[in-house]
Design a protein around this nucleic acid. Sequence first.
DNA 1: ACTTAAACGAGACGGTACGTCGCGTCTTAAA
DNA 2: TTTAAGACGCGACGTACCGTCTCGTTTAAGT
Lengths: 192, 192, 192, 192
Amino acid sequence: MTTAPGRPRDRRIDRAVLAATADLLVEVGYADLTIAAIAERAGTTKPAIYRRWSGKADLVHEAAFPSDADRVPVPATDSLADDVRVMVATVVRLFAAPVARAAVPGLLAEFATDPALHGALLGRFREGPMGHAHARLVDAVASGQARPDLDPVAAIDAIGGSVLLALLLRGDAPDDSWIDGTAALLLKGMAA
Amino acid sequence: MTTAPGRPRDRRIDRAVLAATADLLVEVGYADLTIAAIAERAGTTKPAIYRRWSGKADLVHEAAFPSDADRVPVPATDSLADDVRVMVATVVRLFAAPVARAAVPGLLAEFATDPALHGALLGRFREGPMGHAHARLVDAVASGQARPDLDPVAAIDAIGGSVLLALLLRGDAPDDSWIDGTAALLLKGMAA
Amino acid sequence: MTTAPGRPRDRRIDRAVLAATADLLVEVGYADLTIAAIAERAGTTKPAIYRRWSGKADLVHEAAFPSDADRVPVPATDSLADDVRVMVATVVRLFAAPVARAAVPGLLAEFATDPALHGALLGRFREGPMGHAHARLVDAVASGQARPDLDPVAAIDAIGGSVLLALLLRGDAPDDSWIDGTAALLLKGMAA
Amino acid sequence: MTTAPGRPRDRRIDRAVLAATADLLVEVGYADLTIAAIAERAGTTKPAIYRRWSGKADLVHEAAFPSDADRVPVPATDSLADDVRVMVATVVRLFAAPVARAAVPGLLAEFATDPALHGALLGRFREGPMGHAHARLVDAVASGQARPDLDPVAAIDAIGGSVLLALLLRGDAPDDSWIDGTAALLLKGMAA
DNA sequence: ACTTAAACGAGACGGTACGTCGCGTCTTAAA
DNA sequence: TTTAAGACGCGACGTACCGTCTCGTTTAAGT
């Protein structure tokens, strides 16, 4: 394996653009976010951005959910109750961050048009928290902590969907009491 | 109360525009839907549309969720299990229709920019199926069918969110087994 | 004949754009002339310009050689000597104007790419001064003022080409002594 | 004088680039000619080209008028008639070649922006055919073959300009009858 | 053989302009 | 007043080409 020919990419531009995107996303929202404004804020130009990302959605998806953010795994304990609560709290933490809150509705809208992007973000979640949760639930069914007829996919839909809808309907991050209530509801629904 | 002066609006244009919007929405998706294309398909012009609706979001929201569609109430029985299953199925029926599937992500994205629209659609749901569900759950808590510490809001988030996320993640309408699994999960989470 | 439907063009925009084009052409030259700068100077926008003209060449050609400028015919006297001198002076007047001087090289270059534009400007000249000159020379041959074997086309090439090359080679407008010398040369070449 | 240190330039690249430029110039015209395309056609890269020429104009000017092409002098006879005809034919031969026809309008346009290039090409012609012609005409005035008041500069403008305009107006190379007619016209204009 | 220095290919860089598209508004004549 | 029609101001889009740069590699000439 040899190094790529030609002038190498300036990684500082990657970083500056991602940072500018995250900042502007929070400031003006997804709809009013323009590539030109990102370029200006990052001190670079539109072509330099299009060289790296295919468009606004691609760029925002990387800015809002950087690869190293989902590297915080759900710590599996032997208490299903604890783990479900951690799952809910993790999803809240991930999606309630200002950048994510600003990005998510726009990204969801783009998914309808761009299946590739859809798959990319989905895959990333599957290999991250969603994968962990799925494995933990399968394990819980096997060990008898959860009902034998529990559908892990439906359970994950319920966990993620509750948080997503709470955010979309009310806009602000769910508080601890909401998290407790939702975790209790879901745990009772799953437990043996 | 006297009739308005001048030439009256042509109601056929209202209908043609709504129909064209629904059709195009399914054909090209929310993002690629343009007012000019709707006008052309409906055999009318852009100003005639802007005279009736404030913009794309307003128009789509009426085309995808016509006022008479949510007139299908959740039939309250005295079985919480039956009612929860009906709630889930109703939400699926409402959001899995092709027009709704095409409209929802776009509308969610517009909510971030346009709080008025957010409130409008939300209010409509609150007075429709969501309101029914909320009342039924409050009643269930009071009658002892549900746990006394159940938070009806969290429960509704879970019902709606499960369906929404299932649609967003997988695109196609959830099948009966998913509905059964989700209804069972949620019911067990709520029941006394 | 009925009037065109729709909102009519704002003729003031036409005029403002043509004026701005002529001004900027002289200020910055053809190569550095941008549509965006013209739009800004004219107080309008790029799309409004592209609605009217197909591009820079089309616009410049109209700005540099407005339809009413070539409406100054060569007055035919019965002296071929006088008329040839007027022809030379007319071409000088037409092409030595600052706007024309700035426009001509650029337009010549575009002709290679855009035959339609070539034909348009050519036709306009044919119906203007070039047509007059051609008619006068044919007449001169018939009346015996000019040599019977004179080719009017070659003669017109010589008149126009002399002026054009003088401008292209030296940049500044030919003075009266150059005009006298060239007129004398050409007259002697044509006369019987 | 010692030889330059470092790796010497590859002369094959010079030749390949000039050939590619001439070919592409004829194929796509000056305006649509890009340095990247030339580099690709020549099997080299943009920096290798910019190392040798300052830009498109410089490169084209060398490709269209190679230094050895103007080495064909006007053979001075003692007949002014013969010599004028040769002058006209020489200019036609020089400018009617496909490469020159494609290059000239573009180069003329660049002259407006780049006086250095203007001077360079002009100087080359002055030391070539234009210089020869000028000397011959001065001589003709002195020897009495031409009118004593003949302005050699105006005469050269007329010769070159006639050919240039004929090419620009009609695009194809002038035929022999046009050359005869033009030579006759100019000769009669100059002769004593 | 070993340095030295420039040319090489590759391709990203900052920059500027391009021509197009959709928005939501407006102006007109006719109905 | 609404209609059809279409131009309006506005602002962003994504692309193309410019001429320069930064790499790692190659090629001679001078040691």
